[in-house]
Design a protein around this nucleic acid. Sequence first.
DNA 1: ATCTGTGAAATCCTTCACAGCG
DNA 2: CGCTGTGAAGGATTTCACAGAT
Lengths: 271, 271
Amino acid sequence: MARVQRDGGDDSAPTTELPAVRGQGPPAVNGRANGRGAPIPADKARVIPEAAVARLAVYLRVLSGMAEQGAVTVSSEELATAAGVNSAKLRKDISYIGTYGTRGVGYEVDVLTSEIERVLGLTRQQKVAVVGIGNLGHALANYGGFPGRGFPVEALFDVDPDLIGIPVGGLPVNHIDDIPDICATRAIAIGVIATPPTAAQAVCDRLVEGGVHCVLNFAPVVLGVPEHVEVRKVDLAIELQILSFHVARNAEQRASRRTAAARASSNGEVV
Amino acid sequence: MARVQRDGGDDSAPTTELPAVRGQGPPAVNGRANGRGAPIPADKARVIPEAAVARLAVYLRVLSGMAEQGAVTVSSEELATAAGVNSAKLRKDISYIGTYGTRGVGYEVDVLTSEIERVLGLTRQQKVAVVGIGNLGHALANYGGFPGRGFPVEALFDVDPDLIGIPVGGLPVNHIDDIPDICATRAIAIGVIATPPTAAQAVCDRLVEGGVHCVLNFAPVVLGVPEHVEVRKVDLAIELQILSFHVARNAEQRASRRTAAARASSNGEVV
DNA sequence: ATCTGTGAAATCCTTCACAGCG
DNA sequence: CGCTGTGAAGGATTTCACAGAT
């Protein structure tokens, strides 16, 4: 693992530092809001746009599929197509993490894979706890080792007394009152909330109490958390509503196009 | 329902047209790629940024919670706080759909609710089909009427012969070969893919064949679709990996801060 | 000749800050 | 006086297009 040196070693930082993201701090109520008085030293480079991080994870998956099929190198064009983005964006995304390509050739699949894994912090295991063992929680718990290894589920919680002690996917369910203790002792890194919306905030508070810094929230509520805690939301209803918007928009578009076409002439295009 | 006229009717378009989103077309391989030769007429206004659409759905939920508690009006500040955004952004988002507030007062909860519902196309029902009745599919099917009504699940599909005919959440499971027929006859608007990744593309193709224009994809693959089809992705592994990135970044930050602190002096700050 | 890496331009989104209505 | 609606400024992200490496 431990890289010795950057390939096209251009600037400083020989250490194995991990990059930061930009635009992360809270909106900053007004004016300067950075602890010290300094005008933000920040190493300038070495920040990865939040949007790029999400895509790097996609590239990683595409790469693993390619590796399985025996690919050794891949061009930005191929990888981009497979990932559903354009190649300029892909190259820029990759450039945020270093320069691992060979001009005229492309990227080595395994090099790129391990570099993305390094940046995403996938070299160490992140322990996961799932709270709320209903339909969804069951589905999540049964993933066993979570998607693509690296995210072992190490604790389950629910309120329902009938569930406590029952093993789901090989792990016994604990009561949510034990969240702080168990998360702390098992060093849980990521809490997944799959409870009804009314319970979500209380559960979240206990996770934070137990030292969890990252939360994946499936409950349809906006969680309040201290600023060092990172929350990501997966919201089915909102996804459907966004799709609904597009249905409506398209229907409208088609309708007005039809009107326009009818006005212009009776043309038998198929489109 | 049918609005008679915009409140602060400033520009044209007295019809009940629905807005479009910006930046929607595919990346366009290179150069001009819009069907006709026109330099994109586009009505200029009346486009809602994609990012705003997602937030409007959030506001909608927060509003319904407020309505339940008997609130009649709400200020941009209150609504914004409850939705976890800042008030300027909220006001701008709302301004994309019209001007429904009262200066010095705020917004009427029910007016705003129904206007957002209108824009999101929630006034008509969007029929949903769920494909892949495994753990996740079960969870989805059992939502019964999908989140917040408006999205009735009207068809279920799987390959497993043991499942065909079995009712799940009140609906019998059909074979995936019947997707095109059934989706067409039942006028399914949205297809939800909860299959293993290997099956996802084939399922998606059949949904499209059945006239489905919107797909919500839970399978960890990038789907290829004709350009009139809208796909949204919910990807557990990627969400976890993004969180993992933040864990790694924070750990790194803490480490370097510790180093810096140690270097500067043995200071007993808490932070 | 090909394909990466990247400044610079273009586009999209957010935040500021204030005019103006009630 | 309070609060919305919105130009304009400021950031962030995407795309262009080309210099430079192999």
